[in-house]
């Protein structure tokens, strides 16, 4: 757990709801994600986790409610506008530029923070020194320096997952949203990812959806449980784990996972 999660909120939602025609996927969700905390969202299938995620990244327009980032309303901003305000995301199904090098993947992600600069048709890509420095830093942090010149599509799965998270980090965002960062990973890779996510909280605010309860219970400061599109319980991992409502919601899908 992070020691000193501050008390100010980085990302806040009020009465957030998303409906697809008549189907209510998400209703009345109030979230307060504290600055520099690790916040996880769990819930059984169909609970609305992905919908919530899409609403936060800007991919889906909320049908009701408000989203604020650092006190500023971002409800009506598009996904790429939100990146400029400081929200970055990683995908559940690895989504890289497979034919481009690892270095180029990260360079693009770093450049994405100032995308209008990239319209300059006369400026060489390498002339953005700030982005180039970010790339080197990320490569080291992700332990990918050795494979920097390889095409991203050639990497091993665990490395691709790390690069996936790195793509979000390279934008130097205030908030990082992660959709199942450990999906499809082996045991060793999961440990690496766990350390990586935990380390992120010193510079960023982390919000992630996850099915691996071991990770959720281990590294989250706060856990929010969704069920049928609504918030069921919210609190520190220990509290959530013992909550009878949560146990009922999972109906047999026992929440295991140790708390370190």
């Amino acid at each position: 757990m992070t020691q000193t999660a501050s008390t100010t909120d980085a990302l806040v939602t009020k009465g957030l709801g998303v409906s697809y025609n008549k189907f209510v996927a998400l209703a009345d969700v109030d979230l307060n994600i504290r600055e520099n905390s690790v916040h996880s969202i769990i819930g059984p299938n169909g609970a609305g986790k992905t919908t919530l995620f899409h609403a936060l990244t800007g991919r889906v327009r909320p049908s009701s409610g408000k989203i604020t980032l650092g006190g500023r309303d971002i409800t009506n901003l598009s996904d790429n506008e939100r990146v400029r305000r400081g929200i970055a995301r990683s995908f559940q199904v690895t989504s890289l530029f497979p034919d481009l090098s690892v270095h180029e993947n990260l360079r693009l992600a770093a450049q994405g923070r100032t995308p209008w600069q990239a319209l300059a048709m006369w400026r060489r890509a390498e002339s953005n020194h700030e982005a180039m420095a970010t790339v080197d830093e990320m490569l080291a942090r992700l332990s990918l320096t050795r494979v920097a010149t390889r095409a991203a599509g050639e990497l091993a799965h665990g490395q691709q997952r790390r690069l996936e998270v790195g793509m979000a980090m390279a934008a130097r965002p205030r908030v990082i949203l992660m959709d199942e960062p450990t999906s499809g990973m082996g045991i060793d890779d999961i440990e690496t990812m766990k350390d990586l996510i935990q380390g992120l909280a010193s510079d960023h605010t982390v919000l992630f959806i996850e099915h691996n309860m071991g990770i959720v219970m281990n590294i989250s400061d706060t856990v929010t449980v969704l069920r049928l599109g609504r918030k069921l319980v919210e609190g520190p991992p220990a509290m959530v784990r013992d909550d009878p409502e949560v146990k009922k919601a999972y109906l047999g899908n026992m929440i295991t996972g140790d708390i370190a």
Partner: peptide
């Protein structure tokens, strides 16, 4: 240029290009 390299990124993976 940076521009041309971004075009390649759009061709490679449009969804990711928008997400970054």
């Amino acid at each position: 240029s940076t521009f041309g390299r971004t075009l390649i990124a759009v061709r490679e993976n449009e969804e990711r290009a928008a997400a970054i």
